[in-house]
Design a protein around this nucleic acid. Structure first.
Length: 868
RNA sequence: GGGCGCGUAGCUCAGUGGGAGAGCGCUCGCUUCACACGCGAGAGGUCGCAGGUUCGAAACCCGCCGCGCCCACCA
């Protein structure tokens, strides 16, 4: 603990302390001093896997909220003597940036275009006629646009007071991130952890890319249920219900539950699809739900994931009608797989659908079914949840395509085990992880048919006939990384062989953005680049993040760490909640209720905004509340003024706490420090703040008022003890609040201490307790005496409160003199009150203080007559 | 339908076996020598509902209701 009594320089307290300008003043000093610079020579490292915010627009108040939580913990750990590894990353990789660049510059990425080193974007962006440019040129524009965003973000974070080491900033599209992502992928490929497959894949028809299960969300959409007749032979007709009649040409079977008596006669027979006359078998499967629709379900390739399951399990053929652009394909009627009992009719009907979008085709086929009398009754409107790509605008479809996958399903048990090893804060968040892992239905599809991302570092040979040999990928060599196979050339080939028979072709895809951001511990720690650093920081101590991305970011980081290192990437996961608007809805741009952080910081000050954020308990969603920021500002102002009072012209401190109330105060403070420390150790910053804050207000309202008389006493024998107690308590409060209110704490600390409060040692409960006890009564009766003193502080404060109440009710000023006070209380408390009687008389302006033993606590107050 | 969380004063929330609390807001008062960006006081609640365990339940158990999130649900 710092020794305030030994401070050499006299405190320099401003005449009128203010919060104004503290952010600019101290953030400049911190930067100049390199206060938060990571010192890699230190042993006790505390490493943080900072979430890199998406650089696609602006930071919002939710970011301020959760990053403040992390910063409070970082500052606490630093004061505990840990060397904190606290980098910042920018997630500039991915779709949001692509979209901005396309609109901003009027360009379109075409991976087949060669790189033009002298390329300049068009003067005037024309979104209607975008210029086609190569992937490297496109990426350069993405980088140019994100750079200015990143500067704005950094400036905001500095104003908020994040104690980040800005010399360690990384981006998820930077060369380092690309190298690490590609190296990780090549390792997986070599060990068989990644594979390529032509398979039914979740597909967004607008972006024309594969998407992963984790990127889906449900949206309620109106639809209609159609009852449709399939003609049968002998056993009669079959009725099914469907919301997707446009997939009837893609129907490959009808299914019934094996125990369903209504359809048992049909099972094993064949029926004809309406309009197209294709023969499809009627089969049974236990997953069919008898109480849905007619109990007969149409299996198409592919309407949904259940179709994929049935198709796979029953070995059904593929009859694909949907193209990657969301329109119905031309199909070869009459060829294998496209048989019909009436080819002419099938061709005619399908011709009405071919080339149309899904919605157009659906409307048209309903008309055709009505005309052919195969639609039974009117379509019934229904609302049902439909799967969307979370950034998409039309439902996801299932399209067969060639994609890269990372083996996930087979590691399920191991992942659950890792989830149990991880310390979750709060602990119940683990359930979300387990639910997700248990609900996985397939391996992780990591390839995306996009541009601004990390390319797959592979090429494929082209045989003499011009066919690309996807099953013989040519991996980039370690020295080549990072590579862009759309412009770089594999070893043993030259550029002229690109796309030629006997030559090579680059893999055109990029990795899922989560595949890169799931390597943030490796990127920040420079895995494979700086082995010494990586060994120091990995596994990291904590991953802070919000609960909505447990299934994506948290899950895939654990997965990749397991696959690459067979261990957890971090020991703790600190899960923050969301910021809700006052209507309890999640704040988001689309709802138009976002409050910009810059405005907040300007209006309330960084400490006040941080105070509000730090009140949000771990994992708990918190309502946006400007009122709480005002409370935070009050606390900061109070700290300024209490510090001014305690330090201004303070008499010389003694060596010992000779007064019982001073000892009791320090003893209580020791308990508060203990609680705050325990809370921080459990990542409960909110509780640490709450404990420190509520005691601080009590300290200001009661202790400071009680000791004012002694503090102003000119006799050093009277003021020495209180002077010491004020210095000790003030020093503790300034440090307790430093993780939450870094600016005001640094300010008041600078009035009387050397160095930064943020590198000062966190207060020790044990030392404070010992200080209070050592100065106490002689050996043998220490416990009894300490208890008597604790009671004394308590009773003295309670009596003062009663005296105030009497004055308030008499509408008299607080300094109004009191002729006589009679305290009724138990013998123990009256005995203890003696210890505080002197301070109490001064604080309450009490002439005569008397007491009488009684069961009930009561205070009689006789005010002096009002002379006014 | 399954999982998790939540339900305490007008608002935001703390409280996990014994006294129902804090801050804000509201009302009243006080220029008080650190602070009017202040200080003091007051009003305000059958702790979602109904059972159970217990000497004792806001808290523990069961059921229900309501809200939120995640997952499943496209026949």
């Amino acid at each position: 603990m710092a020794s305030p009594s030994e401070s050499s320089t006299a405190p320099r307290v401003p005449e009128r302390p203010t919060l104004d300008g503290l952010e600019a003043k101290w953030s400049a000093v911190w930067e100049a001093d390199g206060l938060y610079r990571f010192d890699r020579s230190r042993e006790d490292v505390f490493s943080i896997d900072t979430p890199p915010p998406t650089v696609s627009g602006s930071l919002h108040v939710g970011h301020v909220f959760s990053y403040t939580h992390t910063d409070a913990v970082a500052r606490y750990k630093r004061m505990r003597g840990m060397e904190v590894f606290y980098p910042m990353g920018w997630d500039d990789n991915g779709l949001p940036t692509e979209r901005r660049v396309q609109n901003h510059f009027g360009v379109r990425c075409d991976p087949s275009v060669p790189y033009d080193p002298d390329f300049q974007p068009p003067e005037e962006a024309d979104a209607k006629e975008p210029v086609s440019i190569s992937r490297p040129n496109f990426v350069e524009l993405c980088l140019r646009l994100t750079e200015s965003d990143e500067q704005a973000f950094e400036s905001l974070w500095r104003t908020l007071g994040l104690s980040v080491d800005w010399s360690m900033t990384y981006t998820t599209i930077g060369k380092l991130a690309q190298r690490i992502s590609q190296r990780s992928f090549l390792g997986l490929l070599e060990r068989g952890g990644a594979y390529q497959l032509e398979a039914p894949t979740l597909w967004d028809v607008d972006f024309q890319t594969a998407v992963a299960q984790a990127e889906l969300e449900d949206r309620e959409r109106p639809g209609a249920m159609h009852r449709v007749r399939f003609a049968g032979e002998g056993a009669g007709e079959a009725l099914i219900e469907t919301t997707r009649p446009e997939l009837i040409p893609a129907c490959v079977a009808l299914l019934a539950h094996p125990d369903d008596p209504r359809h048992s006669a049909l099972v094993g027979s064949e029926v004809l699809t309406p309009l197209f006359g294709t023969r499809v078998p009627v089969m049974s499967h236990p997953a069919v739900e008898q109480d849905k629709g007619t109990g007969l379900v149409m299996v198409c390739t592919f309407g949904d994931l259940t179709d994929v399951m049935w198709w796979r399990e029953l070995g059904l053929p593929v009859r694909s009608v949907l193209g990657p652009d969301g329109r119905l394909l031309e199909v070869p009627w009459g060829e294998p797989g496209w048989e019909s009992d009436d080819l002419e009719r099938a061709r005619e009907h399908y011709g009405e659908l071919s080339g149309r979008t899904i919605n157009q085709a659906r409307r048209r086929i309903v008309e055709l079914l009505e005309a052919s009398d195969d639609l039974i009754g009117e379509p019934q409107p229904v609302n049902r949840a439909v799967k969307f790509f979370e950034k998409g605008e039309r439902p996801v479809e299932i399209v067969t395509s060639r994609q890269w996958f990372i083996r996930t399903i087979e590691h399920r048990e191991k992942l659950l085990e890792r989830g149990r090893e991880l310390q979750w804060h709060p602990p119940y968040m683990r359930a979300r992880f387990e639910d997700w892992v248990n609900g996985l239905t397939g391996d992780w599809c990591v390839s995306r048919q996009r541009f601004f991302g990390v390319p797959f570092p592979v090429w494929y040979p082209i045989d003499a006939a011009g066919a690309i040999l996807y099953d013989q990928p040519i991996a980039a060599s370690a020295e080549q990384l990072p590579v862009d196979p759309s412009t770089d050339v594999p070893d043993g080939y030259d550029a002229s062989q690109r796309g030629q028979p006997g030559g090579f072709a680059g893999d055109p895809d990029v990795m899922d953005t989560w595949a890169t951001s799931s390597l943030t511990p490796q990127i920040a720690g420079q895995a494979g680049e700086d082995p010494e650093l990586f060994a120091k920081v990995f596994p990291m101590d904590v991953r802070p993040q919000a609960h909505d991305i447990i299934r994506t970011w948290l899950f895939s980081t654990i997965l990749l760490s397991q696959l690459d290192y067979e261990e957890l990437p971090w020991r703790n996961a600190a899960i923050s909640g969301w910021v809700l608007d006052p209507d309890r809805k999640k704040m988001s741009k689309s709802k138009g209720n976002v409050v910009t952080p810059i405005h907040l910081l300007e209006e309330h000050g960084a400490d006040a905004v941080r105070y509000w954020a730090a009140n949000g308990r771990p994992g708990t969603d918190t309502a946006f509340d400007a009122q709480q920021m005002k409370v935070g500002r009050r606390l900061a102002v109070k700290l300024l003024n209490a510090s001014k009072f305690a330090l201004a012209d303070l008499p010389a401190p003694g060596q010992e706490l000779t007064h019982p109330l001073d000892r009791a105060l320090i003893a209580r403070l020791a308990r508060v420090v203990g609680e705050a420390t325990d809370s921080f150790e459990a990542y409960d910053y909110a509780r640490a703040l709450e404990r420190a804050e509520s005691f601080f207000w009590w300290y200001c309202d009661y202790y400071l008022e009680l000791v004012k008389g002694r503090r102003y006493d000119p006799g050093p024998e009277v003021s020495a003890s209180v002077s010491l107690a004020l210095r000790v308590s003030l020093s503790v409060f300034q440090r307790l609040f430093a993780p939450f209110l870094p600016f005001v704490c640094e300010e008041v600390w600078s009035w009387w201490q050397e160095g930064s409060v943020h590198r000062a040692q966190w207060p020790e409960a044990q030392e404070l307790a010992a200080m209070a006890a050592d100065a106490g009564a002689g050996a043998g009766s220490k416990n009894a005496e300490a208890r008597r003193e604790a009671v004394a502080l308590e009773v003295t404060a309670e009596v003062l409160s009663e005296v105030r109440k009497a004055k308030s009710q008499a509408r008299r000023p607080m300094r109004a003199p009191v002729e006589r006070v009679v305290v009724h209380d138990t013998a123990e408390r009256i005995d203890a009150l003696e210890l505080g009687a002197g301070d109490l008389r001064l604080a309450g302006a009490i002439e005569a203080l008397e007491s009488t033993v009684d069961e009930e606590f009561a205070v009689e107050v006789e005010l002096a007559p009002d002379k006014g």
